[in-house]
Design a binder for these strands. Structure first.
Lengths: 362, 362
DNA sequence: CGGGCGTATGTTAGCGCTAACATGCGCCGC
DNA sequence: GCGGCGCATGTTAGCGCTAACATACGCCCG
């Protein structure tokens, strides 16, 4: 790390040399600081600070000289110094469980975009596992880094408890964390989405709709299941799950093999699109026609869903919007806006494609 | 939220009150600082610092007292202050183009995991668009935040030029940026992967292999196309593209419709799995059997590929590994390790599934 | 024509930490 | 028995910035 001295440089020094540079006259070129800019512009460092922060009462001519000096030196304010004195890091944290999945990844993306617009940086912390200690650990990491707020994309029920404890340290919002949380929260109305999807199948004449549920412990999975059950009960249909998966296509495939030859099953509501994909595959291998013999609907509307075989009827969620709303809420939280704390719910919209059709009259 | 203090508080104070807390005796509880810990432990703040940083020459008893005080106060070091004096932020930046896509998202995930293990935070910056100004801007943002190094997941050719200019400011590694860059870089051997995939089709007896290319300007697309062409030329086959897509299933679908009725086409190598999915769909709608009439291979091996109809033969890339290697390289860069700079290449592996089969003897 | 006020700037004092040096103390060797 | 050395700790001086106060200079008004 040593800034290069004049003597022979070891490889360490050389690496630095590349970045810090050495002037032709042999003087060492440090990263310029505010005082350097001030000297060049013939003003005090405070005036430079004023220019940088858009403070009033700076004569236009002075401002121009300062800006010129900044450009000439390619000066950039030291964010650590600024954060130290202002106590604001301009950084937000996002903790996410598996940012490899489409939903979390898109949400993160939405948050990042919105944060940038609002002038914040975003720092991410992945979760090692789903337990609450892990959430605690991730939030702590972020906190140690000095983030001003944290958005937790952690749709596990177990995470919700962990979050409650954290709220006193730094503002936290839960993203897509289901309904039982007291925390500021934004999520999709999974229950409503599931209800609509299920009713759609019922309306097509299916006697009942089976449900391929998400993993136990995920709030989204639970809410979708609740919505499904509710639609069934409202329609007077028999309630029958066909087990739960882990969101993956593989688990959908396995479930599909289990039910492929069950004549009772004429319509399946899957808790997400990936599982629906696996299910479709299993059904095809078993020679069951979709939607001829069995109708299938998914949840999420991933970009690929329209290209499945057959194209998947599903429930669309706008993850980008979710991220944006989460950020908005977090910012309010940080700025201490005190407003009625009912959770933000975003309504999903169902997308009809070719994987659903009328029940066959037997 | 906000536990109010006794006096009338505006919403701002209340919000703060929540986080900072108020003691029973009415004194306001600031976030504890090192001096508070020192006082409680009966030592100087420097000794606290020594304990925190694992410096030698601290008596075990003293260390224990300090640790106890830290725990009691729930003290956490101020990272801005530390960064200011050490000039190390312990933060790395990642710029990514579309972290919604499977590849970039997984790479980011791999980088984050590895960074955490190495004791670094990671800050992300999304790109607004693909031009080099945008890359510049993203890296600058990160730099302003004080990151110690940046990994750029930007597989656009245009980005490579922008990167070269940046290298003098802060260590940068290019992730998956193709072969023409002089920067430290890690990527898959796209060319080799494409060659193997193409040869596989040729070996099945196809007279030639058509290529559904990636978008112009993406190094990965170009390298895959190069590999495909090379395999064709080596095999004495005619070289014929069927146009380029934008990585999306939609674009694959459109390409598929264009070629579905072309009897010349018996094998297609798609530049990624999503386009392959769209292509499969178009083929199915046109009534062309896969692999009976046309064989299809993809690239990436996204988790869903095995559940396509039919399951897709493709080229697997381990994005997690890619991220890990990128981080490793970046760390070396930061620490000034001077070592031969040949780019790190990771060999992909082809995965045979059911979308490819022997050419029909005509 | 002088007191006061508003504008434009400079000066000073930290933010919370680490690095460098200073101090004090016990223990060893001769 | 005392100089010296190494361990354990304390003291001091910044890191680069902003906030708060201090100063200087017009200009208006009575």
């Amino acid at each position: 790390m040593a800034p290069p001295h004049d003597e022979v440089a070891d490889s360490r020094d050389r690496a630095w040399g590349l970045r810090v540079g050495t002037e032709a006259d042999g003087t060492e070129a440090r990263q310029p600081v505010m005082a350097d800019v001030a000297r060049l512009a013939g003003v005090s460092h405070q005036t430079v600070s004023r220019v940088l922060n858009g403070a009033p009462h700076v004569r236009p001519g002075t401002r121009a000289r300062v800006l010129a000096a900044i450009r000439e030196l390619d000066y950039r304010p030291n964010s650590a110094a600024r954060a130290l004195v202002t106590r604001r890091s301009q950084t937000l944290g996002v903790v996410s469980f598996d940012s490899t999945l489409y939903g979390p990844a898109s949400t993160l993306d939405g948050i990042e975009r919105a944060a940038r617009t609002a002038g914040y940086f975003v720092s991410v912390a992945g979760l090692r596992s789903l337990d609450s200690r892990s959430v605690q650990e991730a939030v702590d990491r972020l906190r140690d880094q000095g983030v001003e707020g944290v958005a937790v994309i952690a749709p596990q029920i177990s995470a919700v408890g962990a979050l409650a404890k954290l709220s006193s340290a730094v503002p936290v919002v839960a993203v897509g964390a289901g309904s039982r949380s007291r925390l500021p929260m934004v999520s999709f109305d999974n229950r409503a989405g599931a209800e609509v999807a299920t009713r759609h199948l019922l309306d097509l004449g299916h006697r009942t709709v089976h449900h391929l549920a998400g993993p136990v412990g995920w709030t989204e999975g639970r809410d979708r299941q609740d919505g499904w059950r509710q639609a069934l009960e409202a329609g007077g249909a028999r309630v029958s799950r066909i087990g739960g998966g882990d969101w993956s296509a593989r688990s959908g495939y396995e479930a599909g093999r289990r039910i492929a030859h069950d004549p009772e099953v004429t319509a399946v509501f899957c808790a997400n699109d990936h599982m629906a994909l696996g299910l479709l595959r299993a059904l095809r291998e078993a020679g069951r026609a979709v939607p001829g013999e069995i109708s299938v609907v998914g949840f999420d509307d991933i970009p690929e869903a329209a290209y499945f075989t057959p194209p998947l009827t599903t429930v669309r969620q706008d993850f980008g919007e979710l991220g944006r709303r989460a950020l908005e809420l977090l910012l309010e939280e940080i700025e201490g806006v005190d407003r009625p704390r009912h959770p933000v719910r975003i309504s999903p919209e169902t997308v009809l494609r070719r994987s659903t059709g009328p029940a066959r009259r037997t």
